[in-house]
């Protein structure tokens, strides 16, 4: 592309070196290796690709992966909003500690998280034994997958909502209150519209992460065919049968999904930024 039409004029130096390096590094580390997924799946017939991505067990795994990720995302949104609200608006002892703990799922190795969650939620675990008395089974059921994915997704929502809540203008709320709005009305008409884009971003991030999650889920899911097999596990299963083309076909489906999700997130973020600036 021609320099002038492509880039808007700017006096700052270093665009071309920085831009070229970015594109080169991105291509070498991410794009070229990722393209191998598509090229490898293209080495086989359409029929094989279609059979690989639409066989009953794979479709069941999409249902579980998407279903559990969406449910976990929604739980994360509800719990994450509450936690972000409390962390931003209220004062209580130990608040810095609580705030620091939020990022733990992000830094804890997923396999460790998986083992720890499984020992907590099996029928004789610390939490599982009480749930078992209520007749609720968590480990080795779809519910277990939801628990693991909520653990993974929660920080994304909290960290998206927190800055927006902290920046939000409390004068607006006070104005609404002085005009006679109840606290509930203030919440639904003033606060919620303000954080909605951030909640969406957090939800989408949590979803994108949850769809691909492997380490923390395989321990707690039980891996029952048609019931609790997640999509990444089926990729591994295909590889075990030396079916690289089938494995990469499923991987390609996941890649396209997460690319679309991330694109949505970036558009949402741009919109919310414009929205904030417009105010």
């Amino acid at each position: 592309m021609a320099g002038t039409g492509f880039k808007r004029f700017n006096v700052l130096p270093g665009f071309w070196p920085a831009f070229s390096y970015t594109v080169l590094y991105l291509s070498l580390i991410v794009l070229i290796p990722l393209s191998a997924v598509f090229l490898k799946s293209a080495t086989t017939s359409w029929d094989h690709i279609w059979r690989s991505i639409s066989s009953p067990s794979v479709v069941a795994s999409y249902r579980l992966s998407f279903g559990a990720s969406i449910i976990a995302g929604l739980i994360s949104v509800a719990a994450g909003f509450l936690i972000a609200w409390v962390l931003v608006r209220y004062e209580f002892p130990g608040k810095p500690l609580a705030d620091a703990v939020v990022d733990l799922p992000f830094a804890l190795p997923t396999a460790v998280a998986g083992i720890a969650l499984t020992s907590l939620y099996t029928e004789n675990g610390w939490v599982g034994q009480y749930l078992a008395k209520l007749g609720i089974k968590v480990a080795f059921t779809p519910l277990g997958v939801v628990v693991a994915l909520t653990f993974i997704g929660l920080p994304f929502v909290i960290r998206s909502v927190q800055p927006v809540l902290a920046d939000s203008d409390q004068e607006l709320e006070e104005a609404a209150a002085s005009l006679g709005a109840t606290r509930w009305q203030v919440f639904t008409r003033v606060i919620f519209p303000l954080v909605r884009p951030a909640l969406l971003t957090g939800f989408a991030l949590a979803l994108a992460r949850a769809l691909g999650e492997y380490g923390s889920v395989i321990f707690i899911s039980g891996n029952m065919p048609m019931k609790t097999e997640i999509t990444p596990l089926l990729i591994v299963n295909k590889l075990q049968q030396y079916d690289y083309a089938g494995a990469t076909a499923i991987a390609a489906v996941m890649l396209i999904t997460s690319f679309l999700l991330l694109l949505t997130i970036n558009l949402l973020q741009r919109r919310s930024r414009r929205f904030m600036e417009a105010r």
């Binding site: 066989s55 009953p56 067990s57 029952m224 065919p225 048609m226 049968q241 079916d243």
Partner: peptide
């Protein structure tokens, strides 16, 4: 894939 083991898990 699609063998007997898969079949016994088919709904």
């Amino acid at each position: 894939d699609g063998g007997v083991f898969d079949q016994i898990y088919a709904p």
